Each structure stands twice: as structure tokens, then as C-alpha cells.
Simulated assay, not measured.
Amino acid sequence: MQTKLVALAATAILGLTAVSAQAAILDDVKAKGYVQCGVTGGVPGFSAPDANNVWTGIEVDFCRAMAAAIFNDADAVRYTSLTSQERFTALSAGEIDVLSRTTTWTMSRDTQLGISFVGTMFYDGQGFMVRKADGIASALDLSGAAICIESGTTTELNAADYFAANNMEFNTVVFVDQDEVVKAYEDGRCDVYTTDSSALAAERSKFANPDDHIILPEIISKEPLGPVVRAGDTQWFNIARWTYFALLEAEELGVTSANVDEMLGSDNPAIKRLLGVEGDFGTPLGVTKDWAYQIIKLVGNYAETYDRNVGPSTPIGLERGLNALWKDGGIQYAPPIR
């Protein structure tokens, strides 16, 4: 009997230790009063600062949504600009709480770096941009061309695979930072700029003459881009994951930042659960029961953040495509809150 009691006590202690470890990041974030978010150096529509150092973008909005869920304050975020080579080290070292920086979900990253991908905020694929005056109509015409690439990315491997598979000569001009890549392309140091198609559209929007550059039709890879957290903290992972799902669920249910207060009176059980009117789905996450209401009220739903940052009416001009909801022909899909 004594042995059993000791064993049960040990199990209880281990359980409490596990719970404590899982709550570590949330406790630290609450103690300091903000979410430290790792972002790019500046990709319009995704994460970029303005002249007053105010950050905007679809990836910035994800961090703002997490802050809204935790603090009821979407501005309780600080941003750390990271290169592709710095990002995972910064996350693993605890220098940031979440990485929301055009990062492709791959098996090796998911299994070897001690990190966990939350979901796919943006379904993308790698493309190529060239100068219209060069008369290039297809990526299959790029053999021997000088190609600007950022090191430490999936871009290098994808391009190498594509050129090898099509028996084309592969000439790269590699840079550590994306800004250096763009500058080299603009200065004519290379013929082609390759990265995720969304980033190509974003960078082109900043050119003095965007219409002088075209994005070729070929998409040569799958690039599921999404936020990342350190592995091992289940509670923090769940907060991040369900923040993403709440953005999607809100769009599917037609709940927006403009009508969310009115929707508090909805008879739809799914809307009641989402907004915390019925049930308490926040406490298990470590937040208040109205966590999703705060996200929607302060940041909006997925469609709102997409449309204002990268949608057709922005300079970037991206249609939803695969990023539409499942019911609208895309593949964005959230499990139910219940």
C-alpha cells in the first residue's frame, strides 16, 4: 500500500510538473505583458513596418490576434525582424514567443528543429519574376540565366530540383537577406528573382515601375506558410493553433469585426460557442471565455485580414485561390469549436 501511495504521489508530481512546463510560455508572456513576434525585415502585405515603425501584414495580424486572445489588446505585441537564417535559432532560444514570418512547413523543420508548425495561414508556391523587356514567357526558358536567391530557404532547393529535372543550367547569385536579393535584381545583377509567388507580388508592388516586371506562370513547389512555436509547450501551441482556427471559423460563420457585437445575440449555437456566449472554451487554453470575440473585434476574421493586406484591392492584388474557405473552392478549413 505504501509503495502504491508513493507511486501515485510521484505520478501526481510529474503531472503537475508537466502542466507547469506546458504553461511556461503563457506565464512568461503574461508576466511581461506582450507577445514577442518574429517577423520579416519587411515584405508588404505579410509583415512590414511603415515610416513610424508601425507593423502591418497578414502575419502581423496573426500575432495581433494572439495578443487579443491573451490580453484583450491587439497592440500588446513587439516585433523582432529576422532573416531566414536567424529565425529558427531565435525561436529555439526563446528570443521570440512565436515566429510569423513567411516560413514554409516541411518535414525536416517539423521533426528536427524542436519547433511546431501551427497551421497554414497562406498556401503558396515558388515562382519566378523577370523583366518584361527580356521577352521570357516561361520558366523553361531560364536555362543559364543568373537567378537571385536568398540563402537558408526552401527556395534554393526547389529551384535546384526544378532545373535539374528539366536538364537546364542553374546559375545562382545567393544573398543572406531578402532585401539584398531584391536590390541585386533591381540593379541588374541577375536576370531572375525567385521566391514564393506571394512575396514576388509583394516586392514588385514596391518597384518604381511594377508593370515592367512579370511573374512567370509556372509554380514549381508547394509552400504552406504558417506560424511556428517552440515544441514541448502544449498550451502555447494550442493558443496559437486555435487563434488561427478562430479566424477561419469566424469567416465561415459570417462574424466580422463590424457585426461581432450584434452576433452576440445570434441563435446559432456555433456562433454562441465561438463568441463565448455558450460554454467556456477559453479556460482550457489559459485565456478568458470571450477570447475569440476579442480576436474578431480587434483584428477581424481571416477574410478581413487577407483582404486588407494582400487581397485584390491592395497593390499586391492576390486572389484567394487555395486560401479561400473549403466551401468556396479553397482548402482553408477549421475544426469545430465544441
Rank of each mutant, 00 (worst) to 15 (best):
R320I: 04
R204N: 11
D110W: 13
K4G: 05
L200I: 07
A74W: 02
K289V: 00
D28F: 10
V176K: 12
W105M: 13
K32N: 14
R320M: 08
P224S: 07
T314G: 02
P269Y: 00
E156C: 09
T314I: 03
N259L: 01
I271M: 05
E186L: 15
F175A: 08
A145Y: 15
G38V: 03
A164M: 10
I58W: 02
A145R: 15
V174F: 02
N167C: 00
D233T: 10
G329S: 03
A24K: 15
E95I: 06
V35F: 11
S138P: 06
V39T: 08
F46H: 04
R338H: 11
C190A: 13
V277N: 05
Q294G: 06
G127E: 10
D307L: 12
Y193C: 10
N268C: 05
D290F: 08
Y162W: 11
L140I: 10
A7Q: 12
N209T: 12
F88W: 13
D110S: 15
I13Q: 09
K297G: 09
A24C: 08
A184V: 03
G135F: 14
I13K: 10
Y306Q: 12
P227D: 01
F170H: 11
R273W: 01
W236V: 13
F281N: 08
P336T: 08
A334K: 02
Y293M: 00
V181T: 11
T56D: 09
T154K: 07
G317W: 02
L142H: 03
G279L: 01
D290E: 08
D161K: 15
Y333K: 09
H213M: 10
T243Y: 00
D212E: 15
L5P: 04
V277S: 05
D61C: 13
D27Y: 13
G114N: 02
P312F: 08
Y293E: 00
